[in-house]
Amino acid sequence: MRLQHAILADMRFQIKHGFYLVYVIITIMYLIILSFLPENILSVALPLVVFSDPSVLGLFFIGGIILLEKGQGVLTVLVVTPLLSIEYILSKVISLAIVSVAAALAITWFSYFPSVNWVLLIVSTILTSGIFTLLGIMINAGCNTVNQYMLKTIPYMLLFILPCFALIGFPYSWLFTIIPSVAALKLMMGVYHGILWYEAAALAVYLVIINYILLRVAVRVFENKIVYQD
């Protein structure tokens, strides 16, 4: 019940701050660009767009959200409320995943791509969004300004995004699947190109485990480095 209320409060906050509006604009922008691509290029561009923007939006916004709430004293008050740190974090992860899924569905739906696995699209967007939002919470520790946060995200982004080029394919490139972003992109590609059910299941289970590990670490980092600041 507490979690449900926290999610609703976070969604109201996101609507008030224009998250949904800005993603309507961004979706239109992507749709204009995608509508001019031939189908063979669209089949590569569409998963890349969904993976690189809606799925990763949590990383972009969570830094500002936590810094703002820290500045407003929300995190100090949080300590004396019944809301647990894990519920606070889950509420952020779930509410941002809802924006991600809405944007991913809209971009895919209006691109009129012939064969889409909708269930897998929702699952892969939620799992990818979770990873990046939790990563953002961990990066946020020790940051006092948005510029500091943005700078700290650069090496993490490079670490997560550069290995994705392994999907082009070269000897032993499958080894890169161990990197969560590569696994997530592989799953996202499967949404549009088709994927064997056991491969999809394995990737999804792997991403769930990564999400769980990141959640445990994020809770610890959030309590020690952000709320109590050691």
Binding site: F13, H17, I25, F61, L68, G71, V146
Partner: peptide, 14 residues
């Protein structure tokens, strides 16, 4: 605030 700033930055990319 910062969050609206981020929203603006995202929109400005468009």
């Amino acid at each position: 605030d910062k969050v609206k700033g981020l929203t603006y930055a995202k929109g400005l990319n468009a």
